[in-house]
Amino acid sequence: MREFVYHPPTFRQKLDAALAETRLRLINISRYPGQLVMEIIIPLVFASMPMLLGRATAGADAAANFEANTGTTNYVAYMLIGANIFTIVTSAFWHVAYWLRFEQETGTLESIYLTPTSSVTLLSGVALHSAIRGVGSALIAYFIGCLIYRVNPLQGDVLIALLFILVGLIPLYSLTLLFGAVVLKVKESNALINLMQWVVSFLMGIFFPIAILPKVVQLIALAFPPTWMINGVRSALLGVGFFFGEWYLDLAVLWTFLLITPYVGMWVFRRVENNLRRNEGMGQF
């Protein structure tokens, strides 16, 4: 009989496992190159629709009318930012929630739960893959969009805009954990994600400032981290105005989300996970 002594994984080993999960997803998507192209085209089409509608309805006064309500004449960049941040948010929901459902259906979810890698590590790997894809395609689409509509993509404070995206990613993925827990529980992803992405697009104001929403809806929107993300990026690049006047105050709110939401997300996810193990198991779909 051989002796076996278990050594809990080091941080390096956990990182290695998370990166293996990221690599697996990236290899997988590399076998569908058409989808990667679509991920760049979709936000461009998505942003073009309200832009063209604006031009059709307001004509030559489009920019002036837009400035009166938003604080910027650059409605093209405004829409492009909105559509591309929405891409980051919606891919986060799709990649995490649909990942769980897909692996449940194919049988690989049980396979990875047989290993000593914790679900937090696995989800970190999935989130990293999603962030690379989401942010990557959003940036490319933004630059292509600016090129097509002839606007300067690097106006304003680009570093602050990037900071808002990066800090906003962690609370965003924490939210997707909550959502993933719901998907595991109700064993359905497509309808839920479809519904969720339209609610999210409305609350974060992808094509309009949330100031035009009723007060109650505004409060709900402000409890949602992507709203701070999108407004932070627009304010940094286009000067539409931070919610608290200064960029660091708005960023501090995102940091607060960052400190709280991962624990809430993991706590809920683990409870659902244990509940499933107590009952029919993770693999039952």
């Binding site: 290695d16 496992a17 194919t106 049980e110 396979s111 047989l114 696995l122 693999g283």
Partner: peptide, 27 residues
């Protein structure tokens, strides 16, 4: 463990990539 047979594998990956991935999950 060998549970669920072929359902526990990633079909878009090669056999070697599957083994490497699961090896990483076993640290």
């Amino acid at each position: 463990c060998m549970l669920m047979g072929e359902r526990g594998l990633y079909w878009k990956l090669t056999g070697r990539e599957n083994l490497d991935f699961f090896g990483a999950l076993y640290h």
